[in-house]
Amino acid sequence: MLLVLLLTLITAGVEVRPASSDPLEIPHLQVDSEHVYKEQQVQIRCNTENGSHCHFYTDQSEVPFRSEKCRFKACLITVFGGELLEKRADQSRAEVLLSCAVELMMEGKNVSSQRSEKIKIEVSDKFRRLQIHVDPARVTAEQKARIRCEADRGTRCHFYINQDTVSFRSEPYRLKACVLSVSGRQLLRERGRSPSAEVSVSCAVELETRSEAIISQRSEEISIKVEGLVESEASTYVPETTVSTAAVSISGQFLPPFLWVAAAELLCLMATAALSVLYFRHRDKIEEDPLQRVMNQQWRETEVCTETSTMTLLSTAD
């Protein structure tokens, strides 16, 4: 029966194309999980035989939330569950219908295929909305602020200054919250700004599962006012470093070896100059003076001192 139908089509002059070359090819959509948290990533794959690009859609939207180039007959994207919610990100739980379409080349033009079948993904908030509190909100340099980050679940909390991407402190999660005690001076050192400043602090909660560690979105920011510091106390923090004993201290207690050599040579030169002046002033008397032998001996000692200092300086430079 099929053979008869095929012969009939050929006789009628109808061209038979492979299904994969049909411009109305329908791609096939796959997801690696149908339930994800906002903080988790999900892989979405759009399979096609001839498509060049894929477009991914949520629900009935006509605008794709992501487009990707096809490689090896498929387009693969990785997104966070929260990205799928778009305008519904404030909801703690929502269902999203995913679909995809591909671009096909037909007679030199790009033609969009029909959309794939829809797959429903449930997106929920594993941590719900974090709460952050501080007591007190105004502190001095030595006074400590108690910052509390509250969440339904977690392993530990990370605390952030302003919009920093790296946390400045982490604390373990206990009894539905993480508690951090930090002084005003420490907050300003992390911020590195001028005295009497407001520091914005936020937190995020980390939850370790069997397969991965999930970090929540950040909480809202709270402001902590640090007061009563002088300019020098609130300047940018410089880590303490170990100073070598060969370095010069402010009080002058330690001096490098080459300064000792330079000082010795200067003293020798001053002594030589003084003895030279005395010698030329009293040259005539020295020839008849019975102390001439003593003066000559001092002159030779000065020359030896100068030569010794010079050799020491050269060896130090090497």
Rank of each mutant, 00 (worst) to 15 (best):
Thr8Gly: 12
Ile10Pro: 08
Thr11Ala: 15
Ala12Arg: 13
Arg17Met: 14
Pro18Glu: 12
Pro18Lys: 07
Val31Gly: 07
Ser33Met: 10
Glu34Trp: 02
His35Pro: 00
Val42Phe: 01
Arg45Phe: 04
Arg45Ala: 04
Asn47Ser: 08
Glu49Ala: 11
Glu49Trp: 11
Ser52Asn: 12
Glu62Met: 12
Pro64Gln: 07
Pro64Ser: 01
Glu68Asp: 08
Cys70Met: 05
Phe72Gln: 14
Ala74Lys: 10
Cys75Pro: 13
Gly82Gln: 03
Gly82His: 01
Leu84Trp: 06
Glu86Pro: 01
Ser92His: 01
Leu97Glu: 09
Leu98Pro: 15
Ser99Leu: 08
Ser99Arg: 12
Ser99Cys: 14
Glu107Asn: 11
Val111Leu: 10
Ser112Trp: 15
Ser113Thr: 08
Lys118Gly: 03
Arg128Asp: 11
Arg128Gly: 02
Arg128Asn: 09
Asp135Tyr: 15
Val139Lys: 07
Gln143Tyr: 06
Arg146Cys: 15
Ile147Trp: 14
Cys149Pro: 14
Glu150Arg: 11
Ala151Val: 03
Ala151Arg: 13
Asp152Trp: 02
Thr155His: 06
Ile161Trp: 07
Gln163Ala: 10
Thr165Trp: 06
Thr165Asp: 12
Ser170Asn: 03
Pro172Met: 00
Tyr173Leu: 05
Arg174Phe: 04
Cys178Met: 08
Leu180Glu: 03
Leu187Asn: 06
Leu188Ser: 05
Arg189Tyr: 03
Arg191Phe: 07
Arg191Leu: 12
Ala197Val: 00
Val201Lys: 13
Val201Thr: 08
Val205Lys: 15
Val205Ser: 13
Leu207Arg: 07
Thr209Leu: 11
Thr209Met: 13
Arg210Thr: 01
Ser211Asn: 07
Ala213Phe: 01
Ser216Val: 13
Glu221Trp: 01
Ile222Gly: 05
Lys225Asn: 14
Leu229Phe: 01
Thr236Pro: 06
Pro239Cys: 04
Thr241Val: 11
Ser244Thr: 05
Thr245Gln: 02
Ala246Met: 01
Ile250Ser: 04
Gln253Trp: 03
Phe258Met: 05
Phe258Asp: 06
Leu259Val: 08
Val261Tyr: 10
Ala262Gly: 13
Ala263His: 12
Ala264Arg: 11
Leu267Val: 13
Met270Gly: 12
Met270Ile: 10
Ala271Met: 08
Ala273Phe: 12
Leu275Val: 15
Ser276Gln: 11
Val277Ile: 15
Leu278Val: 00
His282Met: 10
His282Asp: 13
Asp284Gln: 15
Glu287Thr: 07
Glu287Phe: 14
Arg293Ala: 10
Val294Ser: 09
Gln298Leu: 09
Arg300Pro: 02
Cys305Lys: 05
Thr310Glu: 09
Leu313Arg: 14
Leu313Gln: 14
Ser315Met: 10
Ser315Asn: 05
Ala317Ile: 12
